[in-house]
Design a protein around this nucleic acid. Structure first.
Lengths: 258, 258
DNA sequence: ACTTTTATTATCAAAAATTAGAAGTATTTT
DNA sequence: AAAATACTTCTAATTTTTGATAATAAAAGT
């Protein structure tokens, strides 16, 4: 179904082939084998193999540890990062973010998962003098932040279990959830209601809420979150703005796709 | 100036051209004109124009408001988003690798056998300034590297004999094992103790150890290895970490099952 | 261990994309 | 407003890439 104009005219131009291949690999989301894509691409077997080889040689694809399947390589990742941080997109992102900040009057952030952390990608501050100092580029833990918990809640249960099995839940404040079962319950609640919260779990005096920014397959790609010092807003009050956050997150998702 | 292997061999394969074009557009970060990329790509003007047209028709690029320059289109953005959100599996294995590197404080690699070589798939460097320069994608010989010998030791004797019969054991350093009988003895030792070593057999001043990453049937699919310059660690010392390596390899093996 | 099935690689005539130079068109400068 | 400059399109010969077939290798099944 998702094969655009690929086989529409019976033929795919040479120029496009590698690109379509990468598109399929990216869409698959998991490493794929050449044989597995032969049908999806509608190209002859030798061609597909050749394309995989070229892509690997050039660093656009990278072999998985099973030695036979391929996923995105360093060069494709760099290309992707550059694409998404292009000036035009950034401008549009910031304008959406600014609007949210004006409505909520709280600092907002866009963060992406990076290994075992969330990284702040963009942020717009409120005009209030009382601010939380977490500049762009800062890495924060997953298990005790709103954005991190939103991310964890989007993981397939198997990966989540693996993550939890290999990582200790470090205590940051007395409210940090350090028990695996409790965290899983919290994540399940997060999944159901579609937003996550941080009630002083990372820093004393700070509360936050986060929602997901998703791709065309509904996978989380980044998060939109709002932070506030307790002196100004408590969790209940900041949660009242979830609607605003959600609609902004939807706009941000659209930005990526249309 | 960062034109990789573009004009290295005088020619860019047709298949890669569109991709290189998109790569340039993404790197630029701001909308670019066809003419502006002619030089950067080292391709003739008509070609560049045609590529831009194809890319636009297919939605990979889109015209800027000014009508003449192009930036990433919806399809390239989707591809990018999908690429970046399909990194979950990799994330997990990188975190395993990172942990090993932190414990051992030596560069670690995952490699897979590919024909007559081992290919580096993944690597995490130490913080040490003194490093061994073997980037991801590099191919190394089988008979004189830790990972290669680990792989050879896992081969069924018939295949091994056939390999040894048809391949000359090239001498890389004075310590390279070039005698078939001696290599077979070494491989048998490797098989028994469950790890392989490289004592300056591939490069002077470099030692390494490797263990196997196996699939559900116990077959070797890739290897996990640690490398060190002799100035920092000798073979005996690096071998003390075999336990760490083995338990990490086991975790990586588990990842294959999911 | 052996057979069957599936995946990958090699070959080479056929097909498609590329190229260069020049001509046509728009845009900017004076 | 005219000239200069930069950009885009056109063409047919040339170079590359392609893909049906078949050989080989690897996995799966018995």
């Amino acid at each position: 179904m998702p094969n655009d104009m690929a086989d529409q005219k019976g033929q795919i131009p040479t120029n496009l082939r590698l690109l379509l291949l990468l598109e399929e690999v990216a869409r698959a989301g998991v490493p794929v084998t050449p044989a597995g894509l032969v049908e999806a691409l509608g190209l002859p077997k030798p061609t597909v193999h050749r394309l995989f080889n070229t892509a690997e040689e050039e660093g656009f694809l990278q072999r998985d540890i099973d030695g036979r399947s391929y996923g995105p390589g360093p060069r494709l990742r760099r290309l992707s990062v550059n694409t998404l941080s292009s000036q035009r997109l950034r401008t549009l992102r910031l304008s959406i973010l600014t609007e949210v900040v004006e409505q909520m009057d709280e600092t907002c952030n866009i963060s992406v998962p990076d290994r075992e952390h969330m990284v702040y990608l963009e942020r717009i501050e409120t005009k209030w003098p009382l601010r939380i100092q977490l500049p762009v580029g800062t890495r924060v833990p997953l298990h005790c932040t709103a954005s991190g918990k939103m991310y964890l809640s989007s993981l397939n249960p198997r990966y989540l279990d693996r993550y939890l099995a290999t990582h200790k839940l470090e205590q940051h404040t007395s409210k940090t959830i350090t028990d695996v079962a409790a965290l899983k319950a919290e994540l399940s609640k997060t999944r159901k209601r579609g937003y996550s919260t941080d009630d002083e779990e990372f820093m004393y005096g700070m509360v936050a809420v986060a929602v997901a920014i998703v791709d065309d397959q509904g996978r989380l790609v980044s998060t939109l979150s709002a932070h506030s010092p307790l002196q100004r807003n408590n969790l209940v009050k900041i949660t009242e703005n979830i609607g605003t956050l959600k609609s902004a997150a939807e706009k941000l998702s659209d930005l990526l796709l249309t």
